[in-house]
Nucleic acid binder design. Structure first.
Lengths: 336, 336
DNA sequence: CCGGCATATTGGAACGTTCCAATAGCGCCG
DNA sequence: CGGCGCTATTGGAACGTTCCAATATGCCGG
């Protein structure tokens, strides 16, 4: 049972090869009758379209490369799902590459993408990626959009990091907190600096000193750091993201202190778990799925108009107030 | 600046097109000197290999389709990372498709993969996938391997679900628990039935009655269900996976009860967060990354020997004993 | 000095689409 | 009744590799 080609379908339907090809693409230059006849013949023979030949001839692969900096992070996993969903709806196939925050691996994967070839790339740059990456992409004329982490220029979709942490910090200030520390970040990428900035500016505006507790984005590390906090330490923590916030709450509990009562905690991202936690997490919600969809949109737009000025879609975050900041009346057990 | 082809490299190096092609593949039939000359010419011109032409001519795409049932589940995210890593090392590119547990979407994605075309597929079947899926794949001669969730036949890599829950249940029995309930599962796939079986058999062997609390794999749902447990309920919970176990612990805490003290909890999967939790989670560890790598191995093996009997790699799980089962002396706060 | 046998290189068909120019069929107008 | 314009269909080149058969080159033994 050999693979069926357009040629075979054409013979079965009694038309020329190019007619069959047009019919399978449902081209209106053909009579509806002819198109149906060819479709039927294709169905009868079990014809399967061979994309590789089309790619070669047309130069379009309908394929997008997705470079994820860390797929095991639930935020990026959800974002990936959003990208994949949106691209699929637009008729594109997603090729996944996980860089695990390695700039070298990221470089290798981009070469792979050029060979593949993909029609465009969505990039969540690994920490430490130089801005010259964009120059290289421009030089080889590979359409791209950065996601979440970005640079000064180029198509981009991501949250307004600064506005997000400002929202969280101002909320804590309104609740009366004066010693508010920032937990996490400290790495050289646009997200870290943006989130720190939002916090630092809000603190400065209130005339208060900042406190930075650098910490990798990892529940375990965050827990360890927080556990060591003394009662004389900060009364509130603005966390880099939800994972760090979970870690912080676990660390507090392990130290015998109640998050949301003894120390207020806020997160950033708004992943699903945040609502289910005990205490439920007050967090800056940036809807990872929505960012993924926005990124897909921005890239497709860029691909359609290669010359145009790149779109930068900065999504406004919202603060979801729950128990972990103490504003919802602490986190009392609801049964004896 | 047009794209450079082998033709151009050949002209630059002063050899025939086919010589240049051989040289670029580093074929030993060519003198080392010639190969180097061509390589240099390619580097000089900035030649980029065009995979799409090669795919068409050779029929091999060096591309594997990966069907993930739910990428936002951290277990599957980590597994995906393992697959991608192993395939990359073997020179294959991963094409990702997330089915979100939809059988219809899964079907569509498989069609996409056939068109693409991919050399093989790794499938984590969506819940409710009929076993006839394998017949269809056989019919179209698409090499496949199932991952984690599988069927009676076909190449497969996954944990020994039955042995896993048996391990957990027996541990709880040894600790003196008599009322042990199984939380989660209840859906029609090999994982659910396997994990339930291991628990049920261990209980039967001990002459005890089983208790099933069906629950979707979601922290929020698990939390809600567990919160409603009365003090007269089970003293231990064997959870379907780590996410459900986290939910269970959150629900217990919300009800003012201490997981690991009032009620023992065990998980399944061994995702990274499990170690960081408070109380840290006793769990059946199946190393998702290792499963991903095993799956890649099994599929590549199957592709290399299409006729051979499919390999079924069942990974033995281990029980990691931590605080949540109470065996490590409960979960006392470590500071006042 | 020629046939035989390596080794090194070359020429050209083939893969299955897409794309463009060319042609067939047909009704209509002058 | 010839030619025009329209629609529906067709033929064939092109895309950039791979693969196979064919050809050059060098060397050895007879």
């Amino acid at each position: 049972m050999e693979r069926i080609r357009i040629k075979d379908v054409a013979r079965e339907a009694g038309v020329a090869l190019s007619t069959a090809a047009l019919a399978l693409r449902d081209d209106t230059r053909l009579r509806e009758e002819t198109r149906r006849a060819v479709r039927d013949a294709a169905a009868r023979l079990g014809y399967v379209y061979d994309r590789s030949a089309a790619v070669m001839r047309s130069g379009k692969s309908h394929t997008i490369g997705l470079l994820v900096c860390e797929i095991t992070n639930p935020f990026y996993a959800e974002l990936t799902a959003g990208v994949e969903e949106a691209l699929d709806a637009a008729g594109y196939v997603t090729i996944l590459a996980n860089t695990s925050e390695s700039v070298a691996r990221q470089k290798r994967m981009l070469e792979r993408f050029r060979e593949q070839p993909v029609d465009g790339v969505l990039i969540m740059p690994a920490t430490g990626t130089p801005a010259t990456l964009l120059d290289e992409l421009d030089k080889v004329r590979l359409p791209y959009a950065t996601v979440v982490r970005g640079f000064r220029r180029g198509a981009h979709a991501g949250p307004d990091d600064r506005a997000g942490t400002r929202l969280a910090t101002e909320h804590l200030l309104r609740l009366g907190h004066r010693r508010i520390a920032f937990l996490g970040g400290g790495r050289k990428n646009s997200v870290s600096t943006g989130r720190w900035d939002g916090y630092a500016r809000a603190m400065a505006k209130a005339g208060l000193a900042t406190e930075h507790m650098p910490c990798p984005t990892d529940i375990g590390e965050a827990s360890r750091l927080t556990r060591a906090l003394s009662a004389a330490g900060p009364t509130a923590l603005v966390c880099f993201n939800d994972s760090v916030a979970f870690g912080a709450m676990l660390g507090l509990m392990r130290a015998g202190r109640k998050p949301g009562v003894d120390v207020a905690v806020t997160g950033f991202d708004g992943i699903r778990e945040a609502a289910a936690w005990y205490p439920s997490l007050t967090t800056v919600c940036v809807a990872p799925r929505a960012i993924g969809q926005a990124a897909a949109r921005v890239l497709l737009q860029q691909m359609a108009n290669p010359g145009s000025t790149p779109i930068r879609e900065i999504l406004k975050p919202t603060l979801i107030i729950r128990e972990s900041c103490g504003a919802a009346g602490g986190a009392p057990p609801d049964t004896p």
